[in-house]
Nucleic acid binder design. Sequence first.
DNA 1: ACATAAATGATATAACATTACACATCAACC
DNA 2: GGTTGATGTGTAATGTTATATCATTTATGT
Lengths: 159, 159
Amino acid sequence: MQNDHFQPHDHARCISTALDAAERFCAAQGLRLTPVRKRTLEILLSEHRALGAYDILAKLDADGFGSQPPVAYRALDFLTANGFAHKVEALNAYVACTHPGAEHAPAFLICRSCGVVEEAEAAPDKGPLARAAREAGFAIERAVVEAQGTCPACRSAHP
Amino acid sequence: MQNDHFQPHDHARCISTALDAAERFCAAQGLRLTPVRKRTLEILLSEHRALGAYDILAKLDADGFGSQPPVAYRALDFLTANGFAHKVEALNAYVACTHPGAEHAPAFLICRSCGVVEEAEAAPDKGPLARAAREAGFAIERAVVEAQGTCPACRSAHP
DNA sequence: ACATAAATGATATAACATTACACATCAACC
DNA sequence: GGTTGATGTGTAATGTTATATCATTTATGT
C-alpha cells in the first residue's frame, strides 16, 4: 500500500495533491471544475471518511450554494464519473479518491470504529471472483469490493 | 461453480432444496421460521433476481401479512442474519441464498441485462483485497464483493 | 397458569435519491 | 459582437429505501 490513512499523516498534502491532480486532469480533458464541484471535492477531501450526500449538501448550502438535493448529487455525479470520488455502496456515502485521474478499479477498507475509508486496488482480473466469473462465462464490467472491519489504530486503542 | 443460474435449470428444485435446508437449519438451531419469514424466503427464491424490500412488502401485503415496511424488513433481517438471504449492496435489494445453512462469505455476479444474481464464494482470506488488508494491519470482518456485468446467456442473445 | 422473551401490528419519521422545468452561463460559430 | 446550442445551476416536488418507537400478541420454559 503506497499510503495509509489509518495512521497520522500530512493531510494538508493529501488535499492539495488530489485537488491539484483534479485541476490538471480537468484542464487536460476540457472538463469544467466549477465552484460547486470543486467545493464538493474539497469537502470530501477534508476527511478520509465517507460522507452522505446530505452531509455534503448541508455544507454546500452553508457556503451559499443551493440547498436542494440535486445540488449535491450533480456534483457527486461529476466527481464520480471522472474518478475524483467514489461511492461506497455499503454505506450509501461518498469518499474522495486518493489516486485520481487514471481509470482504476477501487476497493475499500472501511473501519467500523473510526469510519476511515482506505482505498486499495481491486485488480478485477485476479482473485477468486475473477475465477468464478471466467468459469461462468460472465463478463465483469464493474466490481464493488468493500471490506468492513477494524483498522490497526482502532484495534490498538480499544483492545 | 457448482451451479449456474444464468442457464436454464430445474428451478423448482432450487426452491425446494433451499426451503428444506432453511427448515432443517431452523429446527436444529431452535430458530422460528414463522409464516411471514417463510413466505418472504419463498418470494426471494421464486427468482434468481434481487428484489427490493418494497417489492417483497407488496407481495406480503397481497398475501395478508401487513403492509408496513417493518413487516418486510424484519423478515429480511431474520433471513440475512441466518444466512438464508443476502443483501446486494449495489442494488439495495435482497436475494435468496443458494447454499444456505453454513456461515459463508458471499460474492455476487450480477447481470445488468437480465438481473440474475449468481452467488459465488468470496474467499475473504485470498485475493488482492486480503493482501492489502494484511499489509495495512486491517482486520476484515465482512466483505461486500459484487461484480456487475453481462452473463453468457444475455451476451449470446444480444451480440 | 404464570412469567419471560420473542415476534408482530401500527404509526411516524428519517435517510437516500430522482424527475422536471425554468433560468443562467459558456463556447463556438457566423 | 450577437445568435445559437450545449452544459450547468436553482428550486420544487416526489420517489425510494430504511429505522425508531410503542402497544399488543404469541410462544416458551417453569
